[in-house]
């Protein structure tokens, strides 16, 4: 019986083990999706967790693959899971030390769309966070240059939100030629 338990614990990924030891109060849920470890982390501790994942010498998730978000406003089951947080900010990390990939998800409520920027940890987060801001309207606190990156500067709204109409609100027929710096 004891032996079996030991085997089970050994097969548990190192990252989950370490997060449970050092950041157990930040973990909201953990899962596995197609071979990738997924952890859901409380927003106020997200930066600390990400910093830990990057700087811990054994884990060393030094490569930030992607930052994006998911709008769950039309997914009742997803919404209920994390206290009706409309958005889920997603960080994909990769470790060259053999730990592979991990996905960190952070629930963000619609009434408080700010989250700490990780540009201090990964320079590459700069444009990724700008894209997430542009498409979803998530505000990244401490970002050095948070402005739109894909849409024109005078664009209104955040088009990847589920309540944004696919064909837009008439932007493609009437937009200002003069306003934009060509």
């Amino acid at each position: 019986m004891n032996e079996e338990k030991e085997v089970e614990e050994q097969s548990k990924p190192l990252v989950l083990e370490k997060l449970e030891t050092h950041h157990s109060d930040a973990l909201l849920a953990q899962d596995e999706a197609r071979g990738t470890i997924v952890v859901v982390v409380r927003k106020d501790q997200a930066y600390a967790v990400l910093e830990y994942l990057k700087t811990d010498p054994e884990l060393a998730y030094t490569y930030l693959v992607d930052v994006t978000a998911v709008d769950n406003s039309q997914m009742e089951s997803e919404l209920m899971q994390f206290d009706y947080a409309r958005f889920m900010v997603v960080y994909q990390l990769y470790s060259y030390q053999g730990q592979g990939r991990v996905r960190v998800k952070v629930p963000v409520h619609e009434n408080d769309l700010s989250i700490t920027s990780v540009t201090g940890l990964w320079q590459g987060a700069n444009w990724l966070e700008r894209e997430t801001y542009d498409m979803f309207g998530i505000n990244f606190d401490g970002h050095p240059d948070l402005r739109r990156i894909l849409m024109p500067d005078d664009f209104e709204g955040h088009p990847l939100r589920k309540d944004y109409p696919l064909r837009g609100r008439g932007e493609r027929e009437r937009f200002n030629f003069d306003k934009q710096n060509v």
């Binding site: 088009p159 944004y164 696919l166 064909r167 837009g168 609100r169 932007e171 493609r172």
Partner: peptide
């Protein structure tokens, strides 16, 4: 690409 950001014909 019948979407919010794409010009539906440059002849406009």
């Amino acid at each position: 690409f019948d979407t919010y950001t794409l010009i539906q014909g440059v002849d406009q």
